[in-house]
Design a binder for these strands. Structure first.
Lengths: 234, 234
DNA sequence: GAGTGGTCTAGACCACTTC
DNA sequence: AAGTGGTCTAGACCACTCC
């Protein structure tokens, strides 16, 4: 692992700036006198460590610092990221109205066939795609939602236009490999390590009104959560 | 990816029970008429997806279901896991008193050189090693801690013996590759995807009294957090 | 001691990006 | 059109597990 250690120390010492493109695999193979298969194995290891990332068929790049993100906070994604001096971008990939599947109806607590809005968004930090999200909301609770500008905070939009106040959120997260569609969207090889995050949002009447599913680049995020001990202590 | 899809459907349909050992790589290579390098590539992909896991030099096994874990809850690890019908185990790997390093003193808010207890524990679920944790506590606040039985809830121990009540916890998590020592301890290949979780625990006086660092097998955990919206809404 | 996984070499072809 | 990453073949040796 001489190869890995070489680059790891270069990156950690800051000699290689975030975003820097590494030399082609074949060049690395020559320079270090190791086989290209071995080079790729070492690069994948460094990818898993979050030191470097790749853009499919474009090459390997030094990873930028992770962004801190508190999924339980009431601050919006954009707000939270820009307070860290980073620039976010949001792209609407698609928006549509569908009839609730069995699966969706269970999670949202509605009838099968009820109208549901689905919005797919891509979010970037400093120009790099870091997450894709699929948002499901009950159309009945916010008619015409799709006609509003959707590249901003959904929370704000739903509060201002439809009087829906977030009351509680149930979040699940797990490390996983990125499935085909999110991977393609993020410009990443299918099977790259990632983070899956789902979020069920309940309104002031404790009704599930929104269900989000996010796939993150695993090296983009540092999740931080602050928890106050509840009165009932074990 | 015929190979991957074959096993993925077997596992997802439940035909291959958790814990089942897969055939040797060379046998798979023969059976599917693909090169062993390709077999290993597919297996690594399935490992990243959480479908299978490996024990170093022992082989590949079907992953058991993830355990749900709420790092913000006040329930103990054992309590939370056993309520899911799973059996936990805890092994003390080491316990010692050290002088606080610069790094530790900053995080714990004490002087460099102050006495600190360090406890390393290994935790298992249904017999499988799923996480290693390193616990740092201020020795001054709980003298003689190391002489108590340490294979149970630290929270309970510190409350009962030293009157220390957890008041707030600051948690950070990120997907990463397992470094050498945790990997070895978990019987996992260095560089395997994992989850890093750190926890700073503050007592009733808002003083940091404990600092934990955990490395999880990435396929073992499903993190769930419930968040109530705070009065101050953005 | 046999078998297995971990690591490595030396090629090859294709799909895609870049020019 | 050239170069690059993604995928694949066909071997090899070592360290370790298992019997």
């Amino acid at each position: 692992m001489r190869f890995r250690d070489h680059f790891a120390s270069l990156i950690e010492s800051g000699s290689l700036a975030p975003g820097t493109k590494l030399p082609p695999e074949r060049a690395l193979s020559n320079e270090f006198s190791i086989n290209r298969v071995t080079v790729r194995q070492a690069l994948s290891r460094m990818e898993a460590e979050g030191l470097i990332f790749r853009e499919e068929r474009r090459g390997w790049f030094v990873s930028p610092p992770r962004v801190y993100y508190d999924p339980t906070a009431n601050t919006s994604f954009t707000e939270s990221i820009s307070s860290q001096g980073r620039v976010t971008g949001t792209t609407i990939l698609s928006k549509q109205e569908v009839a609730a599947s069995k699966w969706l109806s269970t999670l949202l607590g509605c009838a099968v066939g009820d109208p549901i809005y689905i919005i797919n968004r891509l979010r970037t930090v400093d120009g790099r795609a870091v997450l894709v999200e699929q948002i499901h909301v009950k159309a009945k609770r916010c008619p015409g939602l799709l006609d509003y500008p959707l590249d901003q905070s959904m929370t704000d939009l739903m509060a201002e236009k439809f009087g829906i106040i977030e009351h509680r959120t149930q979040i699940n997260m797990r490390p996983t490999a990125l499935p085909e569609i999110p991977a393609k969207t993020l410009g990443v090889v299918v099977g790259t390590p990632g983070l899956y995050l789902s979020r069920a949002i309940l309104d002031q009447f404790n009704e599930v009104i929104e269900l989000d599913q996010e796939f993150w680049r695993h090296d983009a995020i540092d999740i931080c959560v602050s928890a106050a001990a509840s009165p009932a202590q074990s």
